[in-house]
Design a protein around this nucleic acid. Structure first.
Length: 268
DNA sequence: TTCATTTGACCTCT
DNA sequence: AGAGGTCAAATGAA
């Protein structure tokens, strides 16, 4: 078993222990609000770390091809552009490119990267405009872009489509992510299938500056929405969805519910 | 002054 | 021709 797999399991075990602690806290019903919150935060960080570890595992498997595909698609590639809105022999980036990843959230989320909005468009048969973002570090050659669109009003739901991969290393909150540059030696073990696999962009923090200040609200993550029960273990599905729930969702009960499944999973 | 957002124009694709 | 994606001037915020 490789180092990063062990690390991921350690994080999951730790998450399980913290969840048990939280369950104990909840069983006492009243009091210790701050202790409860602290435990929830620790649990979220644990799962964030796990996601980061697994992301690194996965990206080493798939990024090479994707990067090749993206490299010729940079909007700022220069060649082919001769003035505003003018293109020469440059094909438009299609939404359907293989490297796209889709997620659905009930709040606008910050994925840890700095995005700059470059356009907004009303889409046919949609009540809401679609916003276009690219990485702030495009000048460093980063080709990552994303599209954000509200798809439901009540409750609000936002669809985010990520295109391309970040070639910059400028996350806004790097302290929340584990940097793991260990070589990947063992791809044979089980890979968790998260309901979105935008593992390039671990979505655990929010910033009001981007993606609509007025709509922004802090969000809390429900671990049970990221981690699937053991019978859902499968190979990586880049187009699966991630559900991110807002703060008014019952996070705590969700975490507690999840712990039984996690117990099962950790036996593998 | 610098950087981000808005928005109309213009591009490619179907 | 219409839809979707991108550019870049204008504008606003820090």
């Amino acid at each position: 078993m490789s180092w990063d797999t062990k690390k991921a399991i350690e994080e999951l075990v730790r998450g399980r222990e913290l969840t048990n602690q939280l369950r104990d806290l909840l069983s006492k019903s009243v009091g210790d609000e701050s202790g409860r919150e602290d435990t929830v935060n620790k649990i979220c960080n644990t799962f964030a770390n796990t996601l980061s570890i697994l992301r690194n595992r996965n990206s080493s498997c798939s990024d090479d091809n994707d990067m090749k595909e993206d490299s010729g698609e940079s909007p700022s590639a220069g060649a082919g552009k001769d003035g505003r809105g003018s293109y020469k022999s440059k094909r438009r980036k299609s939404v359907a490119v293989a490297s796209s990843r889709r997620s659905i959230a009930s709040a606008l989320i910050d994925d840890g990267y700095a995005w700059r909005k470059y356009g907004q468009k009303q889409i046919l048969n949609s009540n809401h405009p679609r916003s276009y973002y690219r990485c702030t570090h495009k000048d460093q050659g980063c080709v990552a872009t994303k599209q954000v669109q509200m798809i439901e009003d009540d409750p609000p739901k936002y669809e985010t489509i990520y295109l391309g991969h970040h070639t910059c290393n400028n996350t806004l909150n790097p302290s929340h992510f584990i940097v793991d540059d260990h070589p990947i030696s063992d791809h044979s073990s089980v890979i968790l299938s998260f309901a979105n696999n935008n593992l390039n962009n671990s979505p655990f923090l929010s910033s009001a500056k981007q993606e609509g200040k007025e709509d922004y609200k802090p969000i809390t993550y429900n671990a049970s929405d990221y981690l699937l029960s053991p019978h859902h273990l499968s190979t990586f599905d880049p187009l699966a969805e991630m559900r991110v729930l807002s703060a008014d969702h019952d996070v705590i009960s969700g975490v507690v519910d999840y712990v039984q499944d996690l117990d099962e999973f950790l036996k593998f």
